[in-house]
Design a protein around this nucleic acid. Structure first.
Length: 423
RNA sequence: GGAGAGUUGGCCGAGUGGUCCAAGGCAGCAGUUUGCUAAACUGCGCUCCCGUAAGGGGGCUCAUAGGUUCAAAUCCUAUACUCUCCGCCA
């Protein structure tokens, strides 16, 4: 959420920013509620102060005075309770409005209506050339007996898959390869809970607009994470960092669960879009002035990881209209998928500036010249590897005429084989 | 799943209805003092109002939400979480 003071002082900027994200907001209503709330609060608190004063005088008063004080105080208490009730209502209303306001696009983000406005920032590598017709990942994986979607559908339904043998080992190799690179940058590895409570899920902003996308266990009121950011972000909920503790960087490995409610008929083949996949995710908590540099760092690490695998990809600067509510700026990486003859998203990194940290109440403090400054940290996240999609990209880009797969150099030390071939 | 105990500020810990705007200790950060270090002292939750500002004033905060009372860390109810034992279990 945005700072109410900022909204109060910069209503036009908020309107413009929301419009750039195609989000309709009623800022007049919000500002009216804000004024009404503060008026009421002053009134209620004055009443309360007086009531406390009378009450405090009771023990020292004479018996007659006591009687009067108690009666007066009692009356004021009633007045206060009535005011307080109205205050609570109006405050709740204000919060509803406040939570509807998306984060504003960063100044360097291109204003455009939709994904057609995204810009290619850089291209790495080039399309692999095949002197045969390249097969898709599922065809390859099934022939090599490393991916099994048919049996998965028998057991679990559509959009699931088994990764077997060398396919499973490839996953572990990718994890270790990535960890070695990312841990050098000071990221702490984490295996987080994949089931999180309602408070955490709500604070991360996933129950407002994307609730359909999240698996829920009503008996326990727990939610399955769609990305481990949902578990790692709230880890520091209601905490205050010393400035010197920051940046705090995590790289977490978790299984991710998505209902894919709105994607019927989309990417139905293979394991590109499934209900369950494993992912390595980077999450950073930083001082506000370091937010932009951290965003660049996350993007740089993503590119380094992809370059190391020798995959052809490009980086997209996402335009305003294609940003989600929490993001102020987003860079995606799309890897080349030969069977589709196009780039498909494998990575995404966003800065949520202080939008998420306000919801989660994650602050920092630092002192200088005798003054202590409190503020909200900037929170950022970025994909290290969405492992399923990475495997798809490897299988397709490294396929040979005979249907075998060459393993990227960088992974060989981690998986112990240099080729996946039919037995 | 059953039984019991507990939850106080960053940490430890006192406090069983009015002098608690929470004792005392420890740690961290910043400042003052200061040849250096150390010590000592001061400040360090959220929020609203007044003020250009320095600053001043109020409200909230003892797991959370309600309740009783003129008055709640303290009494009552519910919930969450932690621990111990039993049962089950990778």
């Amino acid at each position: 959420m945005l700072d109410i003071k900022f909204i109060r002082e910069n209503p036009e900027a908020v309107l413009t920013g929301a419009a750039a994200k195609n989000v309709a907001i009623d800022i007049t209503k919000l500002l009216k509620l804000d004024v009404a709330k503060r008026d009421l609060q002053v009134h209620a608190e004055k009443t309360r102060a007086l009531q406390k004063e009378l009450s405090a005088a009771v023990p020292k008063a004479s018996p007659e005075e006591k009687k009067k004080l108690v009666a007066d105080s009692s009356k004021l208490k009633e007045e206060f309770l009535a005011l307080d009730e109205r205050l609570k209502l109006i405050d709740a209303e204000l919060m509803v409005e406040l939570l509807k306001i998306p984060n504003l696009p960063a100044p360097d983000v291109k204003i455009a209506k939709d994904e057609s406005g995204n810009e290619v920032a850089l291209v790495s590598g080039s399309r692999p050339q095949f002197d045969f017709k390249p097969k898709d990942a599922l065809t390859l994986g099934e022939a090599l007996d490393i991916i099994d979607v048919d049996r998965a559908s028998k057991v679990s339904g559509s959009r699931f898959g088994y990764l077997k043998g060398a396919g499973a080992m490839l996953e572990f190799a990718i994890v270790r390869y990535a960890m070695d690179i990312i841990m050098k940058e000071g990221f702490v590895p984490v295996v987080p809970p994949v089931m999180v409570g309602e408070k955490a899920m709500r604070a991360m902003g996933y129950l407002d607009r994307a609730a359909d996308e999240v698996y829920h266990f009503p008996a326990d009121n727990l939610y399955l994470v769609g990305t481990s950011e949902q578990s790692v972000g709230p880890m520091h909920m209601d905490e205050v960092f010393e400035a010197a503790e920051l940046p705090k960087r995590y790289v977490s490995f978790s299984t991710c669960f998505r209902r894919e409610a709105g994607s019927y008929g989309k990417d139905t083949r293979g394991i590109l879009r499934v209900h369950q996949f494993d992912k390595l995710e980077m999450v950073s908590f930083v001082l506000p002035e370091n937010g932009d540099a951290e965003h660049k760092l996350l993007s740089t690490i993503e590119q380094k990881l992809m370059k190391g695998l020798g995959l052809h990809f490009h980086v997209l600067n996402i335009c305003s209209g294609d940003l989600g509510d929490p993001a102020a700026r987003k860079y995606d990486i799309e890897a080349w998928v030969p069977s589709e003859d196009k780039f498909r998203e494998t990575h995404s990194t966003s800065t949520t500036t202080d939008w998420q940290s306000r919801r989660l109440n994650i602050r920092y403090k630092r002192s200088s010249e005798g003054k202590t400054e409190h503020g909200y940290v900037h929170m950022l996240n970025g994909t290290a590897f969405a492992i399923g999609r990475t495997i798809v990209a490897i299988l397709e880009n490294y396929q040979q005429a005979d249907g075998s797969i060459k393993i990227p150099e960088a992974l060989i030390p981690y998986c112990g084989f240099d080729r996946i071939a039919k037995k």
